[in-house]
């Protein structure tokens, strides 16, 4: 559904000159790879927040040694026996698993943020564009149920192009399934914080990602429902550059704050302190 770029490439981190340099995908600045990595893959020139792996995200957000993964064994099946002209979904999923060492596009578990216990789901764009499908939906729902049971705040970090076409309508239904879990958190009085990173579009933006009690975005992240090209074709107009950016959705009232990656953990901590505070 919604949002897929034609010829989507993985994060364009082009490494040149004996792996010394990283070229910023946004402003094309040449940055020492060391500096780039130390800066959490954020461009020191333009503050573009590049995509990072689930492990890097957990390292940034969760206290060292406190993360315990749950439902790590959930992985893809092939309910539609889907094939396109390049091959089968089953093969594609297997090669993705081998390449990423992940079993689905999201990793879920519990951990601590400066000592506060939380349940967290982290999507990883490397796994089929972070797409929402059976396994992803199941893990995100089970994590919210875990949070509800233990009365821990729930945090989801989204990075996704939307629903996974290869599982057809079953992927679409994961939108309803994950939202049903979020509804139970709301009813149960459990805080739910959604962090929207580049990109959060299509079926993920139209489900759990925009439903946070608090929605936070990383700077310049692409956030929206329909794809830019589709909209331009529909309205027969060119869209401004800042359309569907974090800054744009902040201005339109759909997120609470834009927070820099290196300040994200402290921001979460500061907000979580208010839950049941005296």
């Amino acid at each position: 559904m919604g949002w897929f770029r034609k010829k989507e490439k993985p994060p364009e981190v082009v490494v040149a000159k004996e792996d010394l340099w990283t070229i910023c995908p946004s402003c094309k600045a040449h940055v020492y790879k060391d500096e780039w990595d130390k800066n959490f893959c954020v461009c020191p020139q333009c503050n573009f927040h590049d995509k990072i792996t689930f492990q890097e995200r957990l390292d940034i957000l969760i206290d060292p040694g406190t993360f315990r993964e749950i439902n790590e064994e959930v992985t893809t099946a092939d309910p539609l026996e889907f094939k396109d002209d390049k091959g089968s979904y089953a093969e594609k999923a297997e090669s993705t698993k081998a390449k990423t060492n992940m079993k689905e596009a999201v990793v879920t578990g519990r951990g601590k943020i400066h000592g506060i216990r939380v349940v967290i789901s982290v999507m990883d764009f490397r796994f089929l564009g972070g797409s929402l499908a059976s396994g992803t939906g199941e893990k995100i729902l089970l994590a919210s149920e875990y949070a509800l049971r233990h009365a821990y705040p729930y945090i989801v970090v989204s990075a996704s192009g939307g629903a996974r076409m290869h599982e057809g309508i079953i992927s679409l239904m994961q939108m309803a399934k994950t939202c049903a879990g979020i509804a139970r958190l709301k009813k149960g009085g459990i805080p739910y914080i959604s962090i929207l990173t580049d990109p959060t579009t299509g079926g993920v933006s139209a489900s759990f990602a925009t439903m946070g009690d608090i929605n936070i975005a990383e700077p310049k992240a692409l956030i929206g429902f329909a794809g830019r090209r589709v909209i331009e074709e529909t309205i027969k107009q060119k869209l401004p550059d800042d359309f569907q950016t974090a800054e744009y959705v902040l201005e339109h009232g759909f997120i609470d704050q834009i927070v820099n990656r290196k300040e994200m953990k402290n921001f979460l901590y500061k907000v979580l302190r208010y839950w049941k505070a005296k």
């Binding site: 959930v74 059976s134 396994g135 939906g137 199941e138 079953i170 239904m173 994961q174 309803a176 399934k177």
Partner: peptide
């Protein structure tokens, strides 16, 4: 809706 989904463990 919980039941919708086909995955492996």
């Amino acid at each position: 809706y919980c039941r919708i989904g086909r995955f492996k463990r």
